[in-house]
Structure formats: structure tokens, C-alpha cells
Design a protein around this nucleic acid. Sequence first.
DNA 1: TCAATTATGTAAAAAAATATACATAAAAAT
DNA 2: ATTTTTATGTATATTTTTTTACATAATTGA
Lengths: 401, 401
Amino acid sequence: MTDYATEKERASLANASDILSLIASGTANSRAALLAASGMSRVTVTQRLNVLLGVGIVEETLRTLPSGGRPTRVLGIRGSAGYMLVADIGETHIHLAAMSLAPDLLAQSTIAFSIAEGPVATLQRMTGEFDRLAAGLGQGFLVAVSLSMPTPVDFKRGRVVGPSVLYGWDDFDIVSWLGRHYKAPIYVENDVNLMTIYEHRHNFPLVDDMIFIKAGTGIGSGIIAGGKIFRGAQGAAGDIGHIQFNSPDAPLCRCGKLGCVEARAGGWAIARDLAEKGLRAETARDVIALVEMQKPEAIMLLRRAGQTIGEVASDVVSILNPSLIVVGGMLARGGDFLLSGIRELVYQRCLPLATGELKIILAEPKTDSALIGAAHLVLDDVFSPAKVEDFLARFISKRPS
Amino acid sequence: MTDYATEKERASLANASDILSLIASGTANSRAALLAASGMSRVTVTQRLNVLLGVGIVEETLRTLPSGGRPTRVLGIRGSAGYMLVADIGETHIHLAAMSLAPDLLAQSTIAFSIAEGPVATLQRMTGEFDRLAAGLGQGFLVAVSLSMPTPVDFKRGRVVGPSVLYGWDDFDIVSWLGRHYKAPIYVENDVNLMTIYEHRHNFPLVDDMIFIKAGTGIGSGIIAGGKIFRGAQGAAGDIGHIQFNSPDAPLCRCGKLGCVEARAGGWAIARDLAEKGLRAETARDVIALVEMQKPEAIMLLRRAGQTIGEVASDVVSILNPSLIVVGGMLARGGDFLLSGIRELVYQRCLPLATGELKIILAEPKTDSALIGAAHLVLDDVFSPAKVEDFLARFISKRPS
DNA sequence: TCAATTATGTAAAAAAATATACATAAAAAT
DNA sequence: ATTTTTATGTATATTTTTTTACATAATTGA
């Protein structure tokens, strides 16, 4: 008898998946909108939605929308229906967290990390910490694990690729390793792409074509093309830090080439130039500290860095014609000192057609944007039309009943 | 009685639209594949497919695929089910054609054109010529009209945008004007994007991320990102001709800026430099003629142009990480003299991660690739899941019965 | 040649979805 | 307060789709 009921439930849930996807993506957030968006009859929508409400993956929010008549009751994913484990691996620390499906931070912690540590030891310590965080939540459904890496990542294969600052991680099969520990999808993505996803999903969900530039110790960017993150063939898209400009004084980059953007405008390059002038600076943070102390040398170099970034940004604008550029990373805390140079070069170099509607703005300083981006990445993928059915199957079989 | 039958037919056709879309996109090309791809039952697929075969929009091709058992009968759009009117507006001529849905050339003609002529007079002459071409086909179903423009185009709005070489076309509502003459969708797109679509759909349909560079009198490019043409916010994406490089000898560009790629490596720039050296050259064609005559000056300048294009191509590779770059346009007829410089700079400047799998090749010389691209654009859009239903409705109401 | 394999068609029964018609609910507009 | 408007629920008849079961078709491989 129970078996029969479960069978029934399984079948209903499979059918309900397209509705769940519409709700999760924000395409439709009410019964009326679901009717229009799904093309199904009201009876069917009602019935399937009730299944989703019944198993607790969707909820009626407290919010309503005025409609001219009876207000629309807003539907949404139930944040507490499951949790994600996310981690942002930096160059000195790893920031770990458990997040709800809202996505909201449920619990977090930070552990030390050395780029020399190697993947196995690191992942072992991470799973230990993840397990501790998860235990604090009590029972719950693990939706996915999602990692932010400070290196290029081949997203499809779930691996660090290319010469990386992380020793021993190149081509290490992170997904398989973590897959032995967690029976849930594992995502691995580059930190700049995740910060880009955060800015897009969290702040500018309606902008279809935008760029996020991270100006920190290094310089990188992420691309939203047609509303989706664009990764390129190897996941290396947006790598603007090592675009070269010729000039008589082209400085040597840490990649071994001359005149890279990063060697001119990255935090480490500015720190190098400041040190030459006798000021103590090693990191992007030090540079910003000096700028905030109004040191003229630091301000001048940050302005010049803005121009260099503007030079490469103008290439990006000519090639991609975005409608928005968001500038983040530690150097963005230098505010207009950085931004004005970027704007100057972009408006000087690009054709009016491309700059007419273009906005170039600063990101809010936010230390955990990659972490939240990692959560958004999970939600976008797990609830996508192609995968939502798998999600639901896992959800009903694993949820505490 | 006939009314009832028509009602029935209409309803069946609306349901059959998703199957038509799968066939047209190449996602499924057999009954078995349709079963798998559509998720519908065999009975339903058979029935709907029979409707499509019955009205003559789909056909069983002569081709079969070995399967290990009974061979798969391959399905496809019936080429003669309708025709498209396409035109490639160049700077001195307009190339017009009627094309089948294959897409194959059914009839074509060329008329003179002056960039000073203005849109109304031009479109009037074009419709006259289109009507003549269509009359030669006898009765038939007009699927769409599609135009290739030698200027930036805002595809969504169907208009020429930005300062253009065509006087009076800027912001002229081409779609509305032609819409009064033809009761069919009207498409207007930039020629480089259409050449890009041609290369992608015709030669490299499986490549998801590629760039087409047109090196002719001017220099432009088109971007395929995630398997689709990428246009950017204003349709200006791929505009690499006016990316600037600093150098002491930066030449003046026709856009008014100094040091643009086009002013260094465009056909007009090379002709300018050749003329300075006493050789007679005005167009990209003249330049290639001199190269084919083995004139050392011309070869040298073409090589150098290749390096300049390689410089901007390396920016594109860093930003987009494509897996293929196709180089076309008149200058591409210079073969390795152009290509080697491009390759040299890209491999020198880009990180191995981005260049490891990258292929850089020449396009086949083909004068009507924009024209065929214009046809592919129509087919991709008209049979897209979102629009295929409209297509079918128009098809049954207008087809000769 | 014959078995194995995959492709494809279809009748009949069962299941699912829709259309129709009639409800109630909760706000804004009057 | 009452009407209007939009949101939403549901029983019933009807229509559509799927499932099941049994076919035939056209190859490859033993």
C-alpha cells in the first residue's frame, strides 16, 4: 500500500518538475503566472503545484502582489527544503559555509590554507569542516556542494586547469574525490565567474550582457552573455589579466610575458611600484590602505591602473558590447580613483554605438560574493529544465519523512 | 464539414510544432530519435509526424542511417515547402536571391547600388527585383525576407544603427517598410554576423564557441557563443576594426581615431600604404591582386596586416576563449601570408590554456556566404521552439491547396 | 540461410490532461 | 457598502496521450 503511494508520488513529482523549474527560475511566481507560462490547464497546474507544496519544496511566501483584484499569492522555493555546502578557496584561507536555498547563510567558518598543501589534504580538511557545519544544522537534504577556486577551472570537467598558483591541483579530479564523500552534485568554478554570477543574479538579474571585472591582486573578468555565464571552450574566457600592451616600459609579468595588464594595474604591480617609491605595500589591501590615507603616490598609481584597466575594458566593450560593467575586487574600494580612469579610456576609445547605453559602476564591497555566487550557480543548474527532474527524484528519496 | 476538417488540422498542427522544431534544428532526424528527444509516446509521435508529412513541411529523405538493425529513415524539412527572399546589400551592388528551405539557391540576380541612394528608393528597387524572382518560381509559400547589411544593425529592432556608410539608413524602419509589401517575417542583420552564421551552421555546426574574422576593406568579426550568434546589447558585438593600439606611427582611421586595427590592417589601409610606395591599389581586391602577382611590397604589408589582426585576435582569444577562429574576407585570399601573422601573434600572446585546442583557419573563398547565412538565420529563428507554432499556422493558411 | 537487432506501425485499454462550468476569496474602485 | 476585478479551487464530461501488446520491416552478423 505504501509502495503504491510512493509510486504515485514519484510519478506526480516527475510531472511537476517543469512547474518547479518555472518557479525556481523566477519565470513564474504565482499560480496565475504558472498557468500562462506553462501552457497547462488550471486543474493540472493546481494539482502539480499541490504536490510540490505537499513535499515541501515550494512554499507560499508571505508576500503578495497587488493585481487590481484579489492579490497574487507569491510562490517560491522553500529555503529550508535543503542546504548547500559551499566553499571559497582563497590563497591563504578557505571560507566554508552551509547555505539555505534562499540562498541564505546558515553557518560558516574559515580555515587556514596554504597553496602548497595539495588537493587531497585540503579536501580532507574541508570535508571535515563541512561535516561539522552540516551536523550543526540537524537533519536536512544536501542539495549540492559547490567550490570557488582562485584559478582557471574547466567547469564541465570540474577541475583546475592550466598553470595554477595551487601546486598539485592541476587536473586533479575534484568532483570524483568529493563524490565519494557526498551523494550530491559537486560543482567547481573559478572565483571571478562566481562573483560575476553573484552580481548578475543578485543585483542585475535583468541585464543580459554584462561584464564583471575583478581588480585585486590579479585582474580577471567574468562575462554574462545572453543572461548566462560564458565560459569559452576551456573555461578560460574573461582572462583579461594577461592581455599585453606594447610600450617602451612594459613591465615583466609573473606569467613571464612583458606588459600584461596585471603587471601594470594588478594589486601586486601597484604594490611593487609603491615599494620602489619607498612606501610599504605588498598586497592590494595595502595599496587601498595607502589610498585611504590619501598618499598621493598611491592615488596616482591607482588612477593610472584605472586607465590601464580602462584600456583593456575598451577592448572588451568593442568585442562584446555589454550594457553594464561592474568593477569589483579590493582595488574597487579605491572608488572613483579607479573608476574614472576606466570610464575615461572606455569613452575615449569605443564607438558611441557601444558606449551610448553602457554603464560602468563599482560593485559593493562584499567579501563573500563568490560564496553566494557558488550557491546561485547550484540553484540555476539544479532547477534547470534539464536537471530539475533528477533533483526532485533525489529530493523525495532522501528527504526526512 | 470542410471547416471542421480545417479546425482539426489546425489543432493537430499546433501540437505537431514541437516535433517540427526538433527536426528542423537537427536535434532529431528520425522517428526513433524523435521518440527519445520529445519524450512523447510512439503513437503520438507517429500521428503528429504524419500530419507534418501530410501537409508537406517534412519529408522522408532518401538517405538512411545504419543502425545495426533496420536502418533509420532520415527525416528532414522539405526544401520545396517554401522559399525565402534574401539579399546581400554591398557597397556597390545588391545581390538578391530566392532560396529553398534546404537552403539552396533557386534564383538570383544582382543590381547596382549606391550608398547615397537612401533606403526608400533602394527598398523599392529591391522589392521589384524580389517580385520578379518570386514570379519565376510560380506559386509558393514565402517563409521570410532576410537582408544582409554592410553596417552595424540592431537586430531586435531591425534597423541600421550608428554612423553608417549608408546615407539615410540610420534608424530607418526597414522591417515596417518591407512588412507592408510582404506578409512574412522580415530579418535584417549585419553581413559579418551572417557570414559567421554561415561558417558555423554550414561548416562547423558542432563547434560551440568560435569567431569569424572578416578581413576585407574593413575589418570586423562575428561571435558564436554557446552555439548561437552573440550580438551584445546594441548588436555591435564583434566590432574589432576600431580597437586601438598605441604606437608612435599610429595612422589615422576613417572613424577619426588614431591607430585603429582597420587603419593598420584593413584593405583600404594596405592600399593606402601600397599607393605610397607607388603601386596602384584602391581596394582589398587590388591588394590581393598584387599579392598574387608576388609583389614583395604587397606581401610584406599583408604579412604585417596579419600580425596586426593577430594582435586583436589575441585579445579576442583571451576574452572569449574560442576553440576556432575562421578568417575570411577578401584579404583571406592572401592565404598563409595573412594567416601566419595571425597565428604568430595569437600563440605568442595568449596563455597555453587558451591556445592548446585552438584552431585558426582560412575560410573557403565564397562570395555568397552572407546570403546563405541570411537563409540560415531565418531557418534557425522560424523553426525555433518559440516561433515554430506561428510558422505552422502561416504555412497551412497560405500554402496552395 | 536464419537469428538477432533495431526501426516502425497500430488497435484497444488505461491514464492523464483539458475544457467547461460553477464556485469562493480578497483586494481595488465606485 | 457594493460592485468590479483578478486570483484561485474543483467536479464533471470530454479529449488527448500513454501503455500495452502484438505486429511487420529491413538490415547485420553468425
